[in-house]
């Protein structure tokens, strides 16, 4: 063995060893990931790809699928009847998403209120979180009593006490969607409050102390310290909120079935109607594709526009 050879071996071997170790580690990682990848592939990834393809077929169960190109999209965007109801469900979805900013404001306000050392604050934190733990089906049934259209419904009892005319709530095409939004805010804020509280508590206290010495008032502190440093949390809540409102289903199915007069038929519910009531799998898949593009565009906008304003402290 010449001197150069042994030198080369000595210099190469550590990197070779490292490579081997890396390969070992990644093999182990893949092995541990395999079960979840498999479940994800079979129950999420494959169906997603499958419905991407099915959207281009005419497929009315139990008949076999027939390739029809863009005809499903033609129904959704061009056809007199189809485009009218589809367009309405898109608008309804956007309307329903009005709940997100409302939810963010309300939960942030409550989180700031709860972010103090007060006796009994734990009880309030628990109370606000409780709706999040309750099943949406149970909540919907209880809220149907609150929203009962007769004069013995709880909200109507309150209206009568204040001398106001009673309302039909969920049975009124104008009020139905606001009713669902209010329910969504009430139900969703518990989770948001907890996330906001965590965000608030991670803001260094010395910033507030320093600003106080500089003469900042409460509003100035909130606007110039709390809000900017909380922006990653707000961004996260915004994204979660968008996803949650796009997939809202249980409350609509239980409380309004998309009515009255289609006033609460969101994209997700519209998809459900075509897939599981009319059994038009192809058309429902086309709606799913549109919903996917919708979410994609919204998420891109969020990342492009909103992330510029997000400060990672």
């Amino acid at each position: 063995m010449s001197k150069t050879e042994s030198l080369a071996k000595n210099t190469l071997s550590p990197s070779l060893q490292r490579k081997q170790r890396q390969r070992k580690e990644s093999l182990a990682a893949y092995a541990f990931l395999a079960p979840s990848i498999l479940i994800f592939a079979v129950f999420t990834f494959f169906p997603a790809i499958f419905s991407m393809v099915a959207g281009f077929f005419r497929w009315n169960l139990p008949y076999d699928p027939v390739f029809t190109g863009l005809s499903n999209f033609e129904f959704l965007f061009v056809d007199d009847i189809g485009a009218a109801e589809f367009g309405k469900s898109v608008l309804n979805t956007l309307y329903f998403m009005l709940g997100i900013p409302i939810n963010i404001c309300v939960s942030l306000w409550i989180a700031v209120m709860l972010n103090r050392r007060l006796p009994g604050v734990g009880i309030f934190r628990t109370a606000f979180f409780l709706p999040t733990l309750t099943s949406m089906a149970a909540i919907s049934v209880v809220w149907m009593w609150l929203y009962h259209p007769a004069d013995y419904g709880l909200f109507n009892t309150l209206l009568i006490r204040f001398g106001l005319p009673i309302q039909s709530w969920l049975r009124d095409p104008v009020l139905a969607m606001p009713c669902l939004i209010v329910l969504g805010v009430w139900r969703g804020m518990g989770y948001n409050i907890v996330i906001f509280l965590a965000g608030l508590q991670s803001i260094p206290h010395d910033l507030y102390e320093a600003s106080e010495i500089d003469g900042a008032n409460w509003w100035g502190q909130f606007r110039l310290i709390t809000l900017p440093l909380l922006s990653p949390t707000t961004f996260y809540i915004l994204i979660i909120g968008v996803i949650n409102s796009l997939k809202a289903f249980a409350e609509i199915d239980i409380m309004t079935q998309g009515g009255p007069l289609g006033a609460t038929t969101t994209l997700a519910y519209y998809l459900y109607q075509y897939a599981f009531q009319y059994f038009q799998i192809g058309l429902a898949s086309a709606v799913a594709i549109v919903l996917f593009v919708f979410i994609l565009v919204l998420t891109l906008i969020q990342f492009k526009v909103v992330e510029k304003r997000v400060h990672y402290g």
């Binding site: 070992k24 893949y30 092995a31 079960p35 498999l38 079979v42």
Partner: peptide, 23 residues
């Protein structure tokens, strides 16, 4: 290494059982 190989084989076997179950 042999341990990892065993783990992979085991997981592959489990996975195929699952897939068969699905089909």
């Amino acid at each position: 290494m042999t341990k990892i190989l065993k783990a992979i084989v085991l997981i592959a076997a489990l996975s195929s059982v699952m897939l068969v179950g699905c089909g």
